[in-house]
Amino acid sequence: MVAEPSPQDNILLDVRGLKKYFPIQRGLLRRTVGYVKAVDDVTFFVREGETLGLVGESGCGKTTAGRTIIRLYEPTAGSALFKTRLLSPDGSPQMVDLLKADKQQLKLLRQEIAMIFQDPINSLNPRMSVSDIIAEPLVIHGRGKGPEVEEIIVNLLERVGLRPEHMRRYPHEFSGGQRQRIGIARALALNPRLVICDEPVSALDVSIQAQTLNLLQDLQADFNLSYIFVAHDLSVVQHVSDRVAVMYVGKIVEMADAEELYINPLHPYTEALMSAVPKPDPLYKSERIVMQGDVADPSNPPPGCYFHPRCRYAVDICSKQTPEFRELRPDHFVACHRAEELQLRGV
């Protein structure tokens, strides 16, 4: 985590110190009176061909982080090195900072990074037919013409389990799950290498969720895709992810191999999260750890560790000093003062 990754490593994306503050404006003159620290010093990396799960409280900045990386939002600070062959003249791999790429570079790079959005209907233009929606990235990047594009679309639709005749329909004619698959087909249109999946399966029913997860895994195997996979369903995250990062109020508090994280969580927030997972068993008595107090406010976070007001293990130091994000065990990173001493319960 210390050395800058070189193009020879199998690191595809290396994000360091990423910050995104949204100004809070008040009054007639739109004076900035403060900032929502939606993403506040986030550091993580994604290896080639792996899936990094990203979980955390709703509103903790997962979407913002994803969007800042592909520059839908202008970053406040940080770097995001992305390994690509597109920008070097001889086609050799090179680490390019996405956050500093200029307009033209960015357009090229966007062929390699796609996004699947959280809200399946809102992310489809209601005025465009399904074929226009899926064809859009192809058209933007001048890939193929008329019948070729059509063929690609038919292919994509079949891959995501829709029918070719759905092409002429409009998004509002589909159910939630079908809409999301249209979004997935669009994301895959340019054969990207990194797909940021922002809750791609939240709106899907379990059998299509299973199909979609299988599909995403097949595509990963076929094209060596990498995913950043944001989801709330921890069982799904565990199923698809190689590694999982846990976010709390704009910061990553823990990151580890999926199995390790679920069995041996090192951060109290992860523990609380794990305890709240609903089990598909009506007789199961939940032993949920109830977090006290208010959810932290990203515009005015508490001093020290952001989680301390709700943490049942909090001690003095927690409210004074920001814990360092450190590698406690091999490949297991955590930001908690008491990580060494606590014995936390996994699932």
Binding site: L72, I113, A114, M115, D119, S123, L124, N125, E136
Partner: peptide, 26 residues
């Protein structure tokens, strides 16, 4: 702020395309 506009933007759509293909029709 709609996600379909963001989606087009993330695919690399130009300003003109965003304005006249996605925003104005809306």
């Amino acid at each position: 702020e709609r996600e379909y506009v963001l989606a087009a933007r993330s695919a690399g759509a130009s300003d003109a395309r965003l304005m006249f293909r996605h925003l104005l029709p809306g």
